[in-house]
């Protein structure tokens, strides 16, 4: 399959997710272009985190198809029909995606360096020296060259989150997912993590999807804002437009509420 820039990096087509009788994602259609930076915002329970989790295959979807670079993520095409994919297919497509979590989820029994070396060695089969080199470079990039041999519990929240970003990048993903990555941090540590993300944004090839409550950052950083409400995108647009002139009443309500809180 030949891919051009016009093929979306990620496309949700009629994706539905239910927890029991509760529908959290309701027939979502959503396409993200190569290198695009999209911020997902919305009230809690609106389904924005679920969107990231489905894309990372942490949640099974109940309907629809997620496409990654024109290839179905959880399905394969067989005889013109889409059937559920096996583990090998899932792993191959999932390899294009990396994720950073709200609570870091670093491996507590490994140093910062080892955290970043583990998957490149076990999953990608990188030799040790190469994995160490890559990990050291990335830790340097996130400003933690001096903390290589520290265990997660010896690092501040902001430092841990930066290690987590380096760890995800070590797998060379094409899409990075950020799930409320500053929400668990003390206010004075938020800036250092956002700075790292800004730096990543300069890499035009990396597609980024972030769930965030940092409206200021979303406005400055994202190419597009998507406002979620009850499992659907209620309104989306370029940041200036979205924040400057929101069309939807719910969007206006939400923005008033969060901006008042600041």
């Amino acid at each position: 399959m030949t891919l051009d820039r016009a093929t979306p990096m990620v496309k949700f087509a009629g994706v539905t997710k239910r927890y029991g009788r509760l529908t959290v994602i309701d027939g979502l259609d959503f396409a993200i272009a190569h290198g695009e930076k999209v911020a997902l915002i919305g009230p809690s329970g609106s389904g924005k985190t679920t969107v990231l989790r489905m894309l990372m295959t942490l949640e099974r979807i109940d309907g629809g198809v997620i496409w990654v670079e024109g290839e179905p993520l959880t399905h394969v095409e067989r005889g013109g029909r889409l059937v559920p994919a096996d583990a090998r297919h899932l792993r191959r497509v999932r390899g294009k995606i990396g994720m950073v979590f709200q609570h870091f989820n670093l491996f507590p029994h490994m140093t910062a360096l080892k955290n970043c070396m583990e998957a490149p060695m076990t999953v990608l089969g990188l030799p040790k020296h190469q994995a160490a080199e890559r990990a050291a470079e990335l830790l340097d990039m996130v400003g933690l060259a001096g903390k290589k041999n520290h265990y997660p519990s010896q690092l501040s929240g902001g430092q841990q989150q930066r290690v987590a970003i380096a760890r995800a990048l070590a797998m060379r993903p094409k899409v990075m997912l950020f799930d409320e990555v500053t929400s668990a941090l003390d206010p004075e540590l938020v800036g250092e993590v956002l700075n790292v993300i800004r730096k990543l944004g300069a890499e035009h090839d990396l597609t980024m999807l972030m769930v965030t409550h940092q409206m200021g950052f979303a406005k400055e950083f994202a190419d597009r804002i998507a406002f979620f409400h009850r499992g659907k995108i209620e309104e989306e647009g370029k940041p200036e437009e979205f924040f400057g002139n929101p069309k939807n009443e719910r969007t206006r309500q939400f923005l008033r509420a969060v901006l008042d809180a600041v």
């Binding site: 942490l58 995606i97 998957a119 987590a164 797998m171």
Partner: peptide, 8 residues
């Protein structure tokens, strides 16, 4: 979840 995200 972190290990899944790292494709292990």
């Amino acid at each position: 979840e972190a290990s899944t995200a790292l494709n292990m």
